[in-house]
Design a protein around this nucleic acid. Structure first.
Lengths: 163, 163
DNA sequence: CACCATTTAGTTGTACCCAATTGAATTGTG
DNA sequence: CACAATTCAATTGGGTACAACTAAATGGTG
């Protein structure tokens, strides 16, 4: 059984090409544009955007193992390990092997890492403001993107088999 | 003169934090999810998603200099140079210094590169289908993302001065 | 013609991102 | 208890992405 194809029959291959190109370009561009604004805003904090995402989770959750961090952010250890080392080198976090489970590494904030939160408080307002979107538009866009992500993740799992 | 802040006064800092987190995370996730689907679909063509974007432009435009390619894709030479070398190593493109202007490098398709288009024709349909979005939804999302990108690009230019 | 700013690719260094592998620790089963 | 399967972090390798820099070529301007 193939997955549902919600597109009308009468759409030409050229039309698909245009649509595909447009949506991918737009998404790619938006992602990089966001990154660009974050680069500017976070430069004064001395961290990158993915590092900021990690800090957000730590500020919210306190300490937690690399595994959990990866689940929250959907990143694997190949991405997180070097990133966390850089955060440790910057003095913002500490990494310690768990006593209970020697396989696990606990990531926790240092004094400095905790203190950084104060300076980071102004970031979201600046970012949201930079979008020129109002609260409802942002929520709406977020919902659409989440729906898109769910569909794509689903397809990535099923497609290799469907070929 | 500061840029317009379209947000109501009564929104708390915590609310901004949530919004910021959600929209950034969702965009990040969507971008990577798209990349994941492309990875799966393009594996049989032996190219990556950014390489596919380059091929799309070449299939459409014929030959063109690295500079123009970068303008179309919003990528600089630091990204394009190694990418194009890989496409050349794969036998899909050739790079030749322009006779008119020795600074410029023309990128053109090989026989093999041109031939690949046939096998790539099925890609857009599969990608669009994977989104489960219909044509209107895609166009609408594209428009929102483009609006977002324009606003963010604008902000990235002005923000350093605004501090 | 000589000088200088500009244009264009390429290189280097830093940082993500993912696939695949490694190695240590833990858990489940007989 | 022994041993296989699993879990978890780290590492390695290939591929973007961008900033800063280099180097060659071009195009004025005096």
């Amino acid at each position: 059984m193939t997955s549902a194809i919600p597109l009308p029959e009468g759409v030409s291959e050229e039309e698909f090409l245009r649509l595909d190109r447009q949506i991918c370009f737009s998404l790619h561009a938006a992602s990089r544009a966001f990154n660009g604004v974050y680069r500017v805003v976070l430069k004064e904090l001395g961290i990158t955007y993915p590092q900021y995402l990690v800090m957000l989770v730590l500020w919210e959750q306190g300490e937690l193992p690399v595994k959990k961090l990866g689940e929250y952010l959907r990143l694997d250890s190949g991405t997180l390990s070097p990133l966390l080392k850089r955060l440790e080198a910057a003095g913002l976090v500490r990494r310690e092997r768990s006593a209970r489970d020697e396989r696990s590494v606990e990531v926790r904030l240092t004094e400095e890492g905790t203190a950084l939160r104060e300076r980071a408080l102004a970031v979201p307002r600046r970012i949201v403001s930079a979008t020129t979107f109002d609260v409802d538009e942002i929520r709406d866009l977020r919902d659409r993107l989440d729906r898109l992500t769910a569909a794509l993740d689903e397809a990535a799992l099923q497609d290799p088999a469907a070929h």
